[in-house]
Amino acid sequence: MSQIFTASADTRLRTVLLAIFFALIAGGLFAGGYMDSSYATLVGWVQNQPVPFSHEHHVGGLGIDCRYCHTTVETSKHAGLPATHICMTCHSQLWTGAPMLAPVRESLASGKPIAWQRVARLPDYVYFDHAIHIARGVPCVSCHGRVDKMPLMARAVALQMQFCLGCHRNPAAALHPPDQVTRMDWSDWNKHPETHKLYGQLMVKTYGIEPAKLDDCNICHR
């Protein structure tokens, strides 16, 4: 009876197994790297908006508070995107002929909302609520970054689970006075870590926050 396998078959089998092994590792590394890359987390990418609305101009330049436009951020799960007539409280008189604002005027005339491309989004299986974070004094800047320096809106932090958990496990450091949540520049606050550490700890107690429970799966996956 003749041999089924040649003499080199064993070596070839080993090489193929080794190749599969490395391919799996490389695949794992690639997937891991991909998950954290800005391509997957969308950090820093801007969307193609129907109107090139600039937060830098309106927030940084004019000093308009977030809540002038994102009206429901204190009271509901959603911050809300501004209705067209909110733009018109100013643009009924300002830049009235600008072609850049044509979609806004069209939207007002037709009643069809402006189709903004969303920037900050979570998958549907995650539950998020703005109101509780605002009531506890977690400033916008900790999740949305320096919005006042964004000519076009881009995601500032990766909205991954580890980001939420990082804070939920140690909320004291994130708490600020609730009446200043929309403030963007906290550099003077951060200059005094000792005093403000105490503030955080005190507020955790005052609000009755239990960090041990804040990372329960069913807080965010319900």
Partner: peptide, 8 residues
């Protein structure tokens, strides 16, 4: 700031 940019 808004009147400064031309609003009445």
């Amino acid at each position: 700031t808004v009147p400064a940019r031309g609003f009445p």
